[in-house]
Amino acid sequence: MATRTENGPAATAEPSAPSPLISFKDVHQVFRLQSAKDENGAGGTRDLVALQGIDVEIHSGQFVALVGASGCGKTTMLNMLAGLVHPTSGEVVLDGTAPELPNMDIGYMFARDALLPWRTARKNVELPLETRGWNRRERQDRAREMLELVGLKGRESQYRLQLSQGMRQRVALARTLAADPSLLLMDEPFAALDARTKLTLQAEFLRIWEQHQGGDRRKTVVFVTHDLQEAVLLADRVIVMLPHPGRIAEDRVIDLPRPRAEDLGEIQFTDEFQRITHDLFERLEGAIGSRAEGRAPR
């Protein structure tokens, strides 16, 4: 997976002893904030530790969920992978190098749809294909195909304002997947949706991802959410984070069977699922109780 891959499949040379696709090595992120003027009239600065001592390795093809309350640095971690933020100290390695912008092999989806309101649904999906040098015909065909995949056939020529929130996130999903990137960064993609729409979209996303599973290219997913249930439901591995400063509290493999896409509704009520979420929840609560403890052992 090179930094700049053209349309063709990336040359993924799988080494016999696989080195991780992503690694965070003792990553710290400090934001210097301009604080309001104090009594002396001096406008001081305040340091905000967004991430502290993050050590994570993610292997190619893994579906990893980052869970945690707002402000624990989840978005910052995704931004680091996208090359939008560079760590204050420590090292982020993506496919052997430091992430750089733009990486054509990344799809990044946001909580807010970030659709261009002056473009139709189809033209929005075409956007990443334009920067990747696809020609008109190819772009149109691909965009139609992607919109159909996310259940928006017939909505190609509608503008953002003419679509419901669920539909907007579908378009955003189609755009994220359109160029077939091998790394998906998902930042609370379904957080703004109502429970029903959310479940439908989770299932659709998982179905699309799981279909690639047996194939030559299984996408790596880093899925940020503040919803523990969603994390356990979708991911192979759940990393629980804590805020102030942002750090990792728990890192656990979820061994629920796959494919899950078709039974998401039922899985939620299985004992196995309940046990895992309950357990993680308790760990989370325990970790909050003993703040000074920092990261839990792996």
Partner: peptide
């Protein structure tokens, strides 16, 4: 958000 999206997409 649009600017971030655009930069990530490669514009």
């Amino acid at each position: 958000d649009l600017m971030t999206m655009a930069r990530v997409v490669g514009l």
